[in-house]
Amino acid sequence: MNPSTDVSPTLAAEAERCRRQIRLGQYAGPTAGLAAGCVQANLMILPASWADEFLLFCQRNPKPCPLLAVTEPGRYNVPALGRDIDIRNDLPKYRVWRDGQLASEPTSLDDVWQDDLVSFLIGCSFSFEEALLANGIDVRHIRLGTNVPMYRTNIPTAATTRLNGPMVVSMRPMKAKDAIRAIQITSRFPAVHGAPVHLGDPALIGIARLDQPDYGDPVDIQPDEIPVFWACGVTPQSIISTVKPRFSITHAPGHMLITDVSNASLASF
């Protein structure tokens, strides 16, 4: 993936404004709906000793882990995704993991940053939500101002030597006709998870209760709606819980990096 940051000055300025607010501690919530038109990215940070293998894992699992950019060890700027990005401070909330256990949820990584850390920026479904809204499809969590519901599933990822675990999915309830249209729309965006991986009965992918997501917030499903599930960039957090690396960092679910890349530039056709 080689996204372009050749976007309008207005769009880039809005992305920078949002990052600046986050960096200064003026915004700490989920980023869905912020900087309309701009790509948002999931984050996975690992020591360099894990980097090559996680890159291979992403290549084997492009649905949940579509790569947008990878940094050099110790680098915290990402020029491929925007000017003046500081990975250590430009996300509203992070998760620091030690031996596979969640150790803290800081709003800055300044105190835990290491010179051998490699950052992986992974496509986010927030990008295709803009296209869904433009086609008149209700995106429930945006309308409600909550975080998207996400669930661990029984869908296995394609393992590497040390990395394995179940896929995480995000869910949006839709009427059947909107679900069909959503499949058509999101298939145009393989860099941000593409088409859904499942729709209908959640038990078939190992989800017992839709009202109890593993990450994010629950949303109501009306009698004339079905749940539609997309592969999710929170999957690496499921992998961390499974394989328990000594040290790793992720975004807090729903708290993304806002980039200067335009959502429109990711459409494949």
Rank of each mutant, 00 (worst) to 15 (best):
L121K: 13
L121P: 02
L121G: 03
L121M: 13
I122F: 04
G123L: 09
S127F: 02
F128I: 11
E130M: 12
E130N: 04
E130K: 10
A131H: 04
L132D: 00
L132H: 02
L132K: 01
L133D: 03
L133Y: 02
L133M: 12
A134D: 14
N135I: 07
N135W: 07
N135V: 05
N135Q: 15
N135Y: 08
G136E: 14
G136N: 07
I137E: 02
I137C: 06
D138T: 13
R140Q: 09
R140E: 13
R140V: 08
R140N: 03
H141N: 10
H141C: 05
H141A: 07
H141I: 07
H141K: 11
H141P: 00
H141S: 06
R143Q: 11
R143C: 00
R143I: 03
R143K: 04
L144E: 10
L144W: 01
L144P: 01
G145M: 06
G145E: 03
T146L: 12
N147C: 09
N147A: 08
N147E: 09
V148E: 00
P149D: 06
M150L: 07
M150A: 04
Y151V: 04
T153N: 09
T153V: 05
T153W: 03
N154H: 06
N154I: 09
I155W: 03
P156R: 09
T157N: 06
A159T: 10
T160P: 05
T160C: 11
T161H: 15
T161G: 10
T161F: 14
R162H: 12
R162E: 15
R162L: 09
L163Y: 04
L163V: 14
L163I: 15
L163D: 12
L163A: 14
N164P: 04
N164W: 14
G165I: 15
P166I: 15
M167Q: 13
V168A: 14
V168F: 06
V168W: 05
V169C: 09
M171I: 13
M171P: 03
R172W: 09
R172N: 10
R172C: 11
P173I: 13
P173M: 12
M174W: 14
M174G: 08
M174S: 14
K175Q: 12
K175F: 07
K175H: 10
K175Y: 05
A176W: 03
A176V: 10
